Simulated scan of single mutants.
Amino acid sequence: MKKIIPLLIITPILDLYILIKASQAMGFWTTVALIILTAIAGYYLAKSEGKLVISKINRELSQGNMPGDDLLTGLCILIGGFFLLLPGIVTDIIGITMILPGTREMFKQYAKRKLEDRIRKGYTNIIIRW
């Protein structure tokens, strides 16, 4: 939580600064159009990637397997889609990297390391209910 709070403060400030500079360079309406287009493109990208992951999760579950990796993939797509809906260039870059399969892996590996760390230190209880 100590790392998230500064990010929640710095990211909008950085986004606002970049948007002002982009608006000065390209014009206000061009910048607004760019923001809207990235949100629309991000929505469709997240939707198509999300459908693929949901079908993989359903396939794994029907075979009796736990879809752990696919659940992390789905979480990355969900968070990435949220970032793409926020106006700003920094948030768009973060969102796109979380949705695209090639760059999404680094987020998944980071999440896996953090989860393993918390389990090893005893901070996380895993409860499986049937």
Rank of each mutant, 00 (worst) to 15 (best):
R59S: 07
A39P: 01
M1F: 02
R118Y: 05
I9P: 01
E49S: 09
W29Y: 13
R129W: 11
L19A: 08
K56Q: 11
Y110I: 12
L100N: 05
G88R: 09
V53E: 02
K121H: 10
T31F: 09
S55I: 08
G95P: 00
R59K: 13
N125G: 06
E105K: 15
E116I: 06
L71E: 05
D70T: 11
P12A: 09
A25P: 06
E60F: 08
F107T: 00
I20F: 10
P6W: 02
I94S: 06
G64A: 01
I99L: 05
I20L: 11
R104P: 01
I89V: 15
L34Q: 02
M106K: 12
G81M: 04
S62C: 04
L78I: 01
L52Q: 07
I18R: 06
I13T: 02
L14F: 05
L61T: 14
M1E: 08
I93F: 14
R113L: 10
G27I: 04
I57Q: 10
F28W: 04
D117R: 14
V90L: 14
T97Y: 13
P6E: 01
V90S: 05
K121L: 05
N125F: 09
M106G: 07
L19S: 05
E49D: 10
M98G: 00
R59L: 07
T38K: 11
I127F: 06
N58E: 15
L14S: 00
I127K: 04
L84I: 10
I40V: 12
W29L: 14
G81W: 01
L19H: 00
Y17V: 15
A111H: 04
